[in-house]
């Protein structure tokens, strides 16, 4: 349940953003190569995606995510601003307005309307990679929560200080973790950092606490640290990372 004042703030902000979106599209219609206009449209869609996702208006969040994919193609010049694109974006804006009205009045817009609009836009996004992998599902998103066999892990990783001398880079281990799932958060532990005068530039002092969302088995996470094996692989690995199964987001 969203508090009334927050819902009102959302509707106000969304209304401003949709005005920006529409004005930007109309600017693009006049000057199809205007980077400024395209940025304005993109930022409006992006901000609306963030705010709607935060409040659990998942239909708006998903549709703006889709629009972002299309707009990114325009940005990368994989797609040109045609009459068809402008017309589509204006129709999309009308739909967003209905969705925001729906959010204000607490009634849903038929899911088919959103699905149809997405289907109509897919001609412009075909072959595009989405702007990012879907982020953490908000708590109030039952569809995703139910479907997700994803588990959240906290991986605490404090590399031995001679890691660099062994030709390894702690940041590469983070990259390896990223290949297993989605790193929701990485926190750097600087508590072992010595005074500057005592610091050896060839040693590592940082530790990392990572929050990882993945559907892969624990062994896949552990495998990321196998690379650090060395003389006493098993002991080292245990020393390197501590794995904690985190609570889910539900």
């Amino acid at each position: 349940m969203i508090p009334d004042d927050l819902q009102q703030l959302f509707v106000e902000e969304a209304t401003d953003l949709l005005r920006d979106f529409e004005e930007g599209v109309l600017e693009l219609e006049q000057a199809s190569d205007s980077v400024e206009a395209l940025n304005r449209v993109f930022r409006a869609a992006h901000t609306l995606k963030g705010a709607s996702g935060m409040l659990g208006f998942t239909d708006i969040a998903r549709f703006t995510h889709f629009l972002e994919t299309l707009l990114l193609r325009l940005r990368k010049r994989e797609l040109t601003v045609s009459v068809g694109v402008v017309e589509y974006l204006l129709r999309a804006s009308d739909l967003l307005r209905r969705l925001v009205d729906g959010a204000r009045e607490g009634r849903a817009v038929p899911a088919d309307d959103v699905a149809d609009m997405e289907a109509a836009g897919r001609v412009y996004t075909r072959g595009a990679t989405p702007p990012d992998a879907p982020g953490a599902a908000p708590a109030a998103e039952p569809a995703l929560a139910e479907a997700g066999r994803e588990t959240h892990y906290v991986v605490r990783f404090h590399p031995p200080d001679d890691l660099l001398l062994r030709g390894l880079d702690p940041l590469r281990l983070l990259d390896a973790l990223e290949s297993v799932g989605t790193l929701l958060e990485v926190e750097v532990d600087t508590s072992r950092l010595p005074a500057l005068a005592d610091m050896d530039p060839e040693r590592t002092y940082f530790g990392f606490t990572c929050r990882l969302a993945t559907a892969r088995p624990v062994a896949s996470i552990e495998a990321c640290f196998d690379v650090v094996g060395g003389r006493d692989g098993a002991r080292d690995r245990g020393h390197l990372a501590e794995l904690v199964v985190d609570r889910g987001l539900g």
Partner: peptide, 13 residues
């Protein structure tokens, strides 16, 4: 950056 938090975020997180 020191770290990042993915939106939508869990307030407790």
């Amino acid at each position: 950056a020191t770290g990042w938090i993915v939106k939508p975020f869990d307030p407790n997180q």
